[in-house]
């Protein structure tokens, strides 16, 4: 029997597989298909202070080995997330959940994180300073070390639960941003959010997305994600949650070797709703195949290679 358990910022999870925010809703749709308590945890759809519709449609487009989305943080607002979604979530998921938070100002982030910090269902706060699909706020906090530091330290002062900062790949040096978050007291970082991208309908000679640009996800971005996790792992000591195009147990191992303590599975849940389950079921076999008894032993295993 191999050991898949990992310690993520002081909380032990049964396995490192975490469905990523925005690809798993609040869990109910997937709970109809399988018992989602097999997951390490999952990161729920990003909450903001106020309710948001998001961007106009079409907000999805296909790409080679992936997809674009420009959903733009649709959510009912943190009050309704707490009063309506969390009680329902609790019925289908009995582990600690990761609360994903977005904002448009430092005060927004502090407000929303403080609210969710008091919810017993929440284990970690994942602070998204990297959404490429909102105008003002969102990604702009994650593209300079100074603003990343500012948001992180403000949130850290306001909450008790571990804070994981979700980073944008749309920067020159992601390791520098990760370091700023660590210096500001972050308990972990997660990366990568989607890559800013676009497609054009050649019949209509116009962008496919109404928002013009969107975030690229799916297997197409996996090598970029591995590179960035590796760079961050060299720069910081706090745990890293690696994500970006993970679609197999082998990808989980690769991301772990790059320096990830846990991984998030995103777009793959949308194209195969059983993807996270399959990866969890497959992981012990793949670990055995590569002679890995304890997954936590190989975190960052490729860093000195």
């Amino acid at each position: 029997m191999v050991d898949m358990k990992v310690d993520l910022c002081g909380i032990t999870i049964d396995n490192p597989v975490i469905p990523a925010s925005g690809t798993f809703g609040y869990g109910y749709e997937f709970a109809e298909l399988y018992d989602i308590n097999i997951l390490g945890t999952f990161s729920f759809k990003g909450a903001t202070k106020e309710p948001r519709f998001g961007n106009p449609t079409p907000r999805i487009a296909e790409t080679p080995s992936g997809m674009l989305n420009a959903v733009g943080l649709q959510n009912p607002g943190v009050d309704k997330v707490i009063s309506e979604e969390l009680p329902k979530l609790k019925k289908v998921f009995n582990k600690k959940v990761m609360a994903n938070v977005s904002g448009f100002s430092v005060d927004d982030y502090v407000y929303t994180c403080s609210r969710l910090d008091k919810c017993e269902e929440v284990g970690w706060l994942e602070v998204n300073i990297s959404c490429p699909n909102v105008h003002g706020g969102g990604m702009s906090f994650g593209t300079s070390p100074k603003s990343a530091f500012e948001v992180t330290s403000a949130v850290k002062k306001a909450v008790k639960k571990p804070v994981i900062i979700k980073l944008s790949p749309n920067v020159t040096d992601i390791a520098e941003i990760a370091k700023a978050c660590e210096d500001a007291g972050a308990d972990g970082v997660s990366l990568i959010n989607t890559l800013l991208a676009m497609r054009i309908d050649i019949k209509k000679r116009a962008p496919l997305l109404k928002n013009v640009t969107g975030g690229l996800s799916g297997p197409a971005i996996f090598p970029v994600a591995v590179r960035m996790v590796y760079q961050c792992a060299k720069a910081v000591k706090i745990p890293i949650v690696g994500m970006g195009g993970i679609s197999s147990a082998e990808d989980v191992i690769e991301m772990t070797l790059a320096g990830a303590t846990a991984v998030e599975v995103g777009a793959e849940n949308l194209t195969d709703p059983f993807a996270s389950k399959k990866i969890i079921e497959d992981l012990p076999n793949v670990m055995e195949k590569y002679g890995i008894n304890k997954l936590s032993d190989i975190i960052g295993g490729a860093l000195n290679g």
Binding site: T23, F53, T57, R59, I60, N69, N269, L270, T271
Partner: peptide, 26 residues
């Protein structure tokens, strides 16, 4: 509507209705 997942997870196909936001797929 252009859909991502088709089963209500991604919020890709939401429209505004009199009774709130609705996912066309779900």
């Amino acid at each position: 509507e252009r859909m991502g997942c088709g089963f209500g997870a991604c919020m890709g196909c939401t429209c505004e209705t009199v009774t709130g936001y609705k996912r066309i797929c779900r």
